[in-house]
Design a protein around this nucleic acid. Structure first.
Lengths: 345, 345
DNA sequence: CTGTTAGCGCCTTCAC
DNA sequence: GTGAAGGCGCTAACAG
């Protein structure tokens, strides 16, 4: 049987209360006594039963999650994952509130952050827009000891505790390698379609993509970036124009959302099979387009992992515990039509 | 505050013990009483606190894991993951024993299974070899109410409770699509290198690969399968011969282990960059080869996920609880040099 | 059939 | 500074 607090108390010749004080390094123990207890802990190889500790504490963690509103399927999927995490919140002793803000709107986001602040939560997770007022709002939270995790899109320089999202430079590089190799010797330029250069994740993907294309496929021409605001209708319009203007277009890298518009435009023009399309985020639409062959590859970040990681990290930070960064790293999934995961209910 | 057993007892006008009996559907409750309790559970929206239940039960789960011995990096990585799960076993109330058997040896595996049987564990996880004596041994375990999960390589028809591994037909298909697209118009045949046709996972990958090549890249010639027994030295020898015989070889799909040998042979022959190589399992060797460009893509199954999933499923089966199959599905990861995960310590 | 009681391992008053 | 006692939510004897 593994040792318990009783065993330590016996071994050290003190009471349970004292052991507990040492365990949670609370004040009120002479350092001699503390030493004795710590020695007992080591010799017995004691490991605290976290479940029992939480049970006794009855602690719960109030968190606020701030997500962009709108039709964006990825974000709606993320919200669904969050809601299913909330369903488990009884068991996990977490208490989550969702705040919704217009996409790409720094002002609104900053306001939401201070609204979150007023609730005095133990932690906040936010899909960041890279702007000074947002950075400032995050700093305010941190100054009040509230843990902050950026989700999906980062905000470096804000002092956030952690970023729960993928390495978007690497994601852009991955897209570049796939594009270059899938195209092979085929002639023609490649277009890049982004949501907005206001968010860090899109900027990073672009940087990675351009870097690889420059290094490994230097002969390939990259057209200027098109910004579709993650809005399917706008994306469709822009791609219509693009296709009309470039009859020799060989590939499109869509690094943001709104892929419904991309797919519609490609199919309408009858160029779904001839243009190599690489997009981000597995949604019902991108999945269908992958299966039909309109999209050739989808890079994905697992929203469920991101949400669960954010919650784990917020808990750890709230308790002042260390985070094993390597363990919280979110992978860049590559999906072809052949390795699609089973559709969830 | 969420409702507890006390609240239910009060609401239903019974004692704690009765509530507990209903909760764990143990016998000894009149159906009228049972109904009353169940109604209380629903009206109060009660959710059992699993942590507290486990604490009270003090239950622990003795499991046996049977793994192939040998140098195979993937299997050693799997074992490492298992050992780190064992390190957490205090917290998870699990008690794991590892049994090691020679690879691809059905006799030895069957013997190990009955050795595991004698320990009367709550569950057994096994990397299966597809042979009648193994199937029989698994059936024996199941007949004694011991849960059995196959790990990495499946054993259909054995009545195992669950398979913790990837869909290897899909993995083979994925490799096929990547190979076909990476090669593009480039001429030349493709070779397939397997470990052994005795294990199900290798057979399945081959099937998927051939299917896609036949459907989508029908012009491409596939050479007869080479079996390297997952042994680097043997693989190197076989690939040496292969390369000598086929100066026009365009690609190699290595669907088993022993990739050290493959990499050595390709580099020795100076054909590392001209032949498109796709392999399985991310190990220190395949990672290095991916970075150097000798291997073009690696398909991976996350050994950590597999181990943790196997343990979760064994626990659930041991408790007679249902398993959400979709949630235990193991993904097929695709790695290029650009999206390699950070190296773990 | 049903209820009482005493823990599981830990934390938290409140005395001393 | 330290200790004793009670309780977190649930389960498991053991009585009735």
């Amino acid at each position: 049987m593994r040792p318990t607090v009783h065993d330590i108390a016996a071994e050290a010749g003190v009471s349970l209360a004292t052991v507990d004080r040492v365990l949670n390094n609370r004040p009120g123990v002479r350092s001699v006594t503390r030493d004795r207890v710590e020695r007992a802990i080591v010799t017995l190889g004691y490991v605290r039963d976290v479940a029992a500790a939480n049970l006794a504490k009855g602690r719960s963690y109030p968190f606020v999650f701030i997500l962009p509103a709108g039709e964006n399927s990825f974000m709606r999927g993320l919200e669904a994952e969050l809601r299913s995490a909330m369903a488990r919140s009884a068991a996990e002793r977490t208490n989550i509130t969702i705040l919704s803000v217009p996409a790409f709107d720094a002002q609104a986001l900053a306001a939401a952050l201070s609204q979150a602040h007023q609730r005095r939560p133990a932690g906040v997770a936010v899909v960041a827009v890279d702007a000074p007022e947002v950075t400032e709002a995050v700093k305010q939270l941190r100054m009040d000891g509230i843990a902050v995790v950026t989700l999906v899109s980062d905000l470096p320089g804000s002092g956030r505790d952690h970023f729960a999202g993928v390495d978007n430079i690497a994601a852009g590089r991955t897209a570049g390698t796939l594009m270059g190799r899938f195209l092979g010797d085929r002639e023609g330029p490649v277009a890049v379609l982004a949501g907005s250069m206001l968010v860090r994740d899109h900027r990073d993907r672009l940087e990675g993509f351009r870097a690889v294309m420059g290094e490994a496929f230097a002969g390939r021409k990259i057209l200027p970036v098109i910004e579709g605001q993650d809005n399917p209708a706008l994306v469709e319009e822009l791609v219509d124009t693009l296709l009309a203007r470039h009859p020799d277009l060989a590939g499109i890298y869509s690094l943001g959302a709104g892929n419904r518009g991309l797919v519609a435009a490609l199919e309408k023009a009858g160029r779904a099979r001839t243009i190599c399309a690489i997009a981000h985020e597995l949604t019902p639409h991108s999945r269908a387009a992958l299966l039909s062959g309109t999209i050739d590859a989808v890079l994905n970040q697992d929203a469920g992992h991101e949400v669960r990681s954010a919650i784990r990290v917020l808990k750890a930070k709230a308790d002042g515990l260390p985070v094993i960064e390597a363990q919280e790293r979110i992978r860049i999934d590559i999906f072809l039509k052949d390795n699609l995961p089973i559709e969830q209910a």
